[in-house]
């Protein structure tokens, strides 16, 4: 079991953009938060860093679904990432980090692991 960590407030509902993502800065680095009001649950948080280029851009990709999975397409070279699992659909060896996320009143909270040991992006 993972060590219980803090649920950091990263932004409010007003900051979110329906059917799209925003980037937030956390102790664990840049994270992309997506709000897909037509799905349940509607909130997803994954690393903002595109694993193919190391650039912080994933929140700026187009969201949608492919074969039923919620995905975002990297705005750089268009690979798709499953928003629930972080799995890249085009390359099974690539995954981005995912974070538990919840709505608390007006606040959006993300669970960041306690002892953050960041590894450099691929």
């Amino acid at each position: 079991m993972r060590e219980r960590a803090s649920w950091d407030v990263v932004c409010t509902v007003d900051d979110l953009i329906a059917e799209s993502g925003v980037a937030v800065w956390t102790e664990d680095g840049p994270v992309a938060v997506f709000y897909l009001p037509h799905r349940l649950p509607a909130l997803f948080a994954i690393s903002h860093t595109d694993p193919f280029t190391g650039k912080n851009v994933l929140a700026r990709g187009i969201t949608g679904d492919l074969k039923g999975q919620p995905v975002v397409a990297s705005p750089l070279y268009k690979q798709h990432f499953n928003l629930e699992t972080g799995q890249c659909l085009e390359d099974e060896t690539v995954q981005v980090k995912t974070y538990p996320v919840l709505l608390d009143g007006q606040n959006i909270r993300i669970e960041v692991p306690a002892s953050v040991s960041r590894t450099a992006a691929a």
Binding site: I17, V57, R60, I62, T63, P75, L76
Partner: peptide, 22 residues
């Protein structure tokens, strides 16, 4: 416009051309 934002390619969303370093 609110309904159209999430539809756009990144370049259209930010009305600029994304380069390789973001």
């Amino acid at each position: 416009a609110t309904d159209h934002v999430p539809l756009q390619d990144t370049n259209d969303t930010f009305m600029a051309n994304m380069q390789k370093n973001g």
